[in-house]
Amino acid sequence: MEPVIDQAFAAALYSDGDAGLDTGASLAAADPASDAELLRRGEEFVRRAWERGWLPADLVRVVRRELDEHAAGLAAGLIASEVRRYERLPPRWQSQLDELPPAPPANRPDRFSYASAVLGLYRLLLRLPAIEPVGPPPGAPRDGLRLPPAHDEPRMLTRIRALLAKAEATGFPEEAEALTTKAQELMARHSIDEALLAARTHSSRAPGARRIGVDAPYETAKAILLDAVASANRCRAVWNSDLGFSTVVGFASDLEAVELLHTSLLVQGMVAMTRAEAGQRAGGRKRTKTFRQSFLMAYAQRLGRRLADGTARATAEADAEGAAAGPSGAADPGLLPVLAARDMAVTDAAERMFPRTTTTRVRGATDPDGWTHGTAAADRARMGADAPEISG
């Protein structure tokens, strides 16, 4: 006789709609002896996801996006259970594991509801496509979880993180501007120093990649903002709108800067949008969706210009400093050729990962007030030391 779990899977996982899901959940709920096998097979689905390029944060994000928060918790429980079998985990996995949502208790509120939610999750995991890997899958299986030793991040990134956290927390726009400007200065200098050091030591490090969630609503504007931040930090961003993330390709220190700055600018933009929207409502305005869309589009576009200008300015200043210092005892490759070589390496890596990218027509902003307020918010979040405001 076919095992109960096989019957439940056949009914629920390979059909669409609720009828098959209900049948499968009824079969699984009626057989408590199948609980262990249900968990084991869920771990196997997670393991297959690793082989297809997914990371823990990716899985939880797509489950939350396609199902709900309860299902995201179920996925987190499966992930935590599955990774216990590995002796080694790839870099950055521990931070993702630490941020997993709590797993709900088994068989609550009742066995049928729990089985239905689990099988709905398995149906989604089964159908996940393969995506571009951004790191190696977990290492060899072994009882117990032993994580690699943690590496302290560079002191410069710690300072940048602290500055951006203060910028997000302050209630004074002028203070946020100053803090964010200082953080951007440190990012640009850190990137240049890393590039020169790698060239002088003939480092063999190649560009890597990192996935960053781009969540609804207004995901187009958020993706444009991320692309602007990535470009300003000598990275390339490729947006997967269907799965709700962008893959950013670049060198490790630049990827860290992109994630930090994008998160902070998005937080600052949402705060500014909320304030501007409150002012619009106080003036009698009722519709807000077009206002928000136009606000964030303007915010992303204007910041893109400012970020690009700030990077060019910082690079010119560093190149001038190097020229004024003159030749040193060690062979100095020169800043501009070094940066050009890194840009080429990033472009080559991105094209290998994504040989068939397409461009997407962006829907235009339709709310003049939203565009005006978004542009003003971007100007207040100006990047680069002593950057002049954009006029016209």
Rank of each mutant, 00 (worst) to 15 (best):
Q280G: 02
R281V: 04
R281K: 12
A282E: 14
A282L: 15
A282H: 12
G284P: 02
K286E: 02
R287V: 11
T288G: 04
T288A: 12
T290A: 15
F291P: 04
R292V: 03
Q293D: 15
S294R: 07
S294Y: 09
F295I: 09
F295A: 07
M297T: 05
Y299H: 12
Q301V: 15
R302D: 03
L303C: 05
L303Q: 07
L303G: 06
G304S: 10
R306F: 03
R306I: 15
L307C: 07
A308N: 12
D309Q: 12
G310F: 03
G310H: 01
G310W: 01
T311E: 08
A312I: 02
T315C: 06
T315G: 00
E317P: 05
E317R: 14
D319I: 05
D319T: 11
D319Y: 10
A320L: 15
A320K: 13
E321H: 13
E321F: 13
G322M: 06
A325D: 12
P327L: 10
G329L: 15
A330L: 12
D332L: 06
P333Q: 00
G334L: 01
L335I: 02
L335R: 02
L336K: 08
P337R: 06
P337K: 10
P337C: 07
V338R: 01
L339M: 13
A340L: 11
A340K: 12
A340W: 04
M344I: 09
A345H: 01
D348G: 09
A349G: 08
R352M: 01
M353G: 09
F354L: 05
R356H: 12
T357E: 09
T357G: 07
T359Y: 08
T359I: 07
T360M: 10
R361I: 10
R361T: 15
R361D: 15
V362H: 08
R363L: 08
G364F: 10
A365R: 14
D367E: 10
P368I: 04
P368E: 01
D369Y: 06
G370F: 03
W371H: 08
T372V: 11
T372L: 13
T372W: 09
G374N: 01
T375P: 00
A381R: 06
A381T: 06
R382Y: 03
R382L: 06
M383V: 12
A385H: 03
A387Y: 03
A387Q: 08
A387R: 06
P388M: 11
P388R: 13
